[in-house]
Simulated assay, not measured.
Amino acid sequence: MALPVLFGANIDPVWRDVDGPLQLAVQAERDGLDLVTIQDHPYQAAFHDMWTLMSFLAAGTQRVVFVPAVANLPLRPPAMLAKAAASFDVLSAGRLRLGLGAGAFWEAIEAMGGPRRGRKEAVDALSEAIEVIRALWSGQRSARAGGAHYRVAGIHPGPAPSASLGIWLGAYGPRMLDLTGARADGWLPSLAYLGVDRLGEASARIDEAAHRAGRDPAVIRKVYNLNGLITPVSEGPFYGPVRQWVDQITDLVGAYGMNGFVYWPDRDHRRQLSLFAQEVVPAVRRVLPA
């Protein structure tokens, strides 16, 4: 059975606009969006800490689900990441999905005290981190998991999160896509890094990896981060009128099995997110099968 298509808004974790992030989260919830994503780049001077901001926004909303896009593994040890995610999940009544990435911007990560990793090492570390996080969410009396990069042994897990808390990977390369299909609950790519011309091949690779692992690909949440603008005149993909956005999104659902879309406006965030929620999303929902 196909998953329902979800829609969301990205909110930049900026601190100079003190009330801005909360206002946008409240707007997203009021307009009926399902998700709010928050970037995790703590080395950016202009950004709040992701976990602190998400906790604050969750306290000011009631329904919308929060997703790190994506949690920065090299700066967040997986045992602590699992603890933070489970706590957030329990305190917010299941309003979290753990977006997780292997890392990027290595110079900035290293400057903040994190490790610098090559591609293979980063994927290996992420794979171990998934084992550790699952172990800490297991509800078992004690947990043992990990490998060369991360390891827990004899730790007592808790709290146990809800069944809705899953791991969504920000994945692009072949090994990351295979890992997503084999072991993740969701996929969180971005248009800026994976264009529509390559989306189908990547989605198919995830499905193939899921089949090899004995999983049903239909249970994997596939959320596409869409940067662009809703404008009167078309100037390219995801840069045009409402009708163009509706057609493009419905095409991605039908052609590539995408089942979630989060809007990252290039500018004019409040108005653009309102147009997306109030005009694009209802029109897409009317077109898609119930």
Rank of each mutant, 00 (worst) to 15 (best):
R134V: 11
L136F: 13
S127H: 11
G147H: 08
L126C: 02
L91N: 12
A84D: 15
G146T: 03
L96C: 02
A59T: 09
V64A: 05
L81N: 09
F88K: 03
G158L: 03
S142C: 00
A71Q: 00
V65M: 03
S142N: 11
W137N: 07
R117V: 03
F66M: 08
I38Y: 09
G146D: 05
I155E: 15
A145S: 10
E121R: 13
G154C: 01
V132N: 15
I109Y: 08
Y43M: 07
L136I: 10
S55G: 15
E128S: 03
V64L: 12
G158K: 04
A153S: 15
S92C: 10
R116I: 01
M112P: 00
R144C: 02
V67N: 07
V65A: 11
R97D: 14
R97L: 10
M54F: 02
A125L: 01
D124Y: 06
W51Q: 06
A59P: 07
W51T: 03
S92V: 14
F105M: 14
L126F: 07
I133Q: 07
E131H: 11
L73I: 09
A153Y: 05
G147R: 04
A104W: 15
T61C: 09
R97C: 06
L73K: 11
G139E: 03
L136G: 12
A71P: 00
L75F: 12
A143Q: 09
I133Y: 04
P115D: 08
G139W: 11
A145V: 03
A58Q: 12
P157S: 13
G99W: 05
A129H: 09
M54L: 00
R117T: 05
D40E: 10
G147D: 12
V65Q: 08
G60K: 04
A108P: 00
G118L: 06
L136W: 15
D49G: 10
L96M: 12
G103Q: 10
R151S: 08
A69Y: 14
M50W: 03
V65E: 09
P74G: 12
T61W: 07
R119F: 13
F105V: 11
A153G: 02
V67C: 11
S138F: 10
A93Y: 00
E107P: 02
I133W: 01
M50E: 09
I130K: 04
A104C: 02
I38Q: 04
P68C: 01
R151P: 06
A93M: 02
K83E: 06
L126Y: 09
G146Y: 07
Q39L: 08
R76Y: 08
T61L: 08
R76H: 06
A129Q: 05
A108V: 01
A135C: 04
R141S: 14
L75S: 12
R141G: 12
Q62Y: 05
K120W: 08
I130V: 12
E110I: 07
H149L: 09
V132Y: 14
L96I: 13
Q140T: 06
G60R: 12
L136A: 13
I109S: 05
W137C: 08
W137D: 01
L73R: 01
A145R: 06
G60P: 10
